[in-house]
Computed example of a mutant assay.
Amino acid sequence: MMGMFWMALITSLTAWFCYMNTSEEIPRILAIAVGAMGVGCDLVIAPWPIQLSIVLFILYRTRHLSPPPTKAS
């Protein structure tokens, strides 16, 4: 299971590297697609401490995204 995790992680990082260093449209779209699939696989097969840390990170980061309260006049 850990081997698949590392393989998907390396694939995602390679796709990100290709995305950042390519200026043409089609290869960039394909790199995004491959990276998204790799991240999805990583989230599914990651060990539970990593999954828990990802969930806590997402919950912490989205706290500040709510719109400010409106004043009722």
Results as ranks from 00 to 15, higher is better:
Met4Gly: 04
Met4Val: 02
Met4Lys: 12
Phe5Trp: 02
Met7Thr: 00
Met7Trp: 01
Ala8His: 00
Ala8Ser: 13
Ala8Asn: 00
Leu9Ser: 00
Ile10Thr: 08
Thr11Ala: 14
Ser12Arg: 00
Thr14Gly: 10
Trp16Arg: 02
Trp16Val: 10
Phe17Tyr: 08
Phe17Asp: 03
Phe17Gln: 06
Tyr19Trp: 14
Tyr19Cys: 07
Met20Gln: 14
Asn21Met: 12
Asn21Thr: 15
Asn21Tyr: 13
Thr22His: 10
Thr22Trp: 05
Thr22Ile: 10
Glu24Ser: 07
Glu24Asp: 09
Glu24Trp: 15
Glu24His: 11
Ile26Glu: 11
Ile26Gln: 08
Ile26Ser: 04
Ile26Thr: 11
Pro27Gln: 08
Arg28Ile: 08
Ile29Gly: 02
Ile29Phe: 11
Leu30Phe: 09
Ala31Glu: 02
Ile32Phe: 07
Ile32Gly: 01
Ala33Thr: 15
Ala33Glu: 09
Val34Met: 08
Val34Gly: 01
Gly35Met: 10
Gly38Val: 03
Val39Ile: 15
Gly40Val: 08
Gly40Lys: 13
Gly40Asn: 14
Cys41Lys: 06
Cys41Asp: 04
Cys41Arg: 04
Asp42Glu: 09
Asp42Phe: 00
Asp42Arg: 01
Leu43Met: 13
Val44Cys: 05
Ile45Tyr: 03
Ala46Phe: 02
Ala46Met: 07
Ala46Glu: 03
Trp48Asp: 15
Trp48Leu: 13
Pro49Asn: 05
Ile50Asn: 05
Ser53Tyr: 01
Ser53Ala: 12
Ser53Val: 14
Ile54His: 07
Ile54Ser: 14
Ile54Met: 13
Leu56Ser: 08
Leu56Asn: 07
Ile58Tyr: 09
Tyr60Ala: 07
Tyr60Met: 10
Thr62Ile: 15
Thr62Val: 15
Thr62Gly: 02
Thr62Arg: 15
Arg63Asp: 04
Arg63Asn: 05
Arg63Phe: 03
His64Pro: 04
Leu65Cys: 14
Ser66Leu: 15
Ser66Pro: 02
Pro67Trp: 01
Pro68Lys: 12
Thr70Val: 13
Lys71Asp: 00
Ala72Gly: 01
Ala72Leu: 15
Ser73Asp: 14
Ser73Val: 11
